[in-house]
């Protein structure tokens, strides 16, 4: 796997986990305060990041940077 591809994928994966954990932290801190939307915002970010990661994987496979087994 090319490093140029692997690195952003790794960073993205780490970011996703971080944002998810952050959402959990906000969840325990914000007590569902009406004006605080940090949980929803963090979770939205996490969905977007996951989408980007998935697209990255698809392109990576398409251009032959990664070789999923069984193909």
């Amino acid at each position: 796997m090319a490093m140029t591809f692997k690195l952003p994928a790794l960073i993205l994966a780490a970011l996703i986990v971080f944002v998810l954990a952050e959402a959990l932290y906000f969840l325990s801190k914000d007590h569902g305060d009406k004006d605080k939307t940090r949980v929803a915002r963090a979770l939205s970010v996490r969905v977007s990041l996951a989408l980007i990661l998935f697209l990255l994987l698809i392109t990576g496979a398409f251009f032959g940077f990664i070789h999923p087994h069984g193909i």
């Binding site: 959990l24 949980v39 996490r46």
Partner: peptide, 9 residues
């Protein structure tokens, strides 16, 4: 909702 995101990740 958070749990669902967790399962997704």
């Amino acid at each position: 909702a958070w749990y669902w995101h967790f399962v997704d990740v």
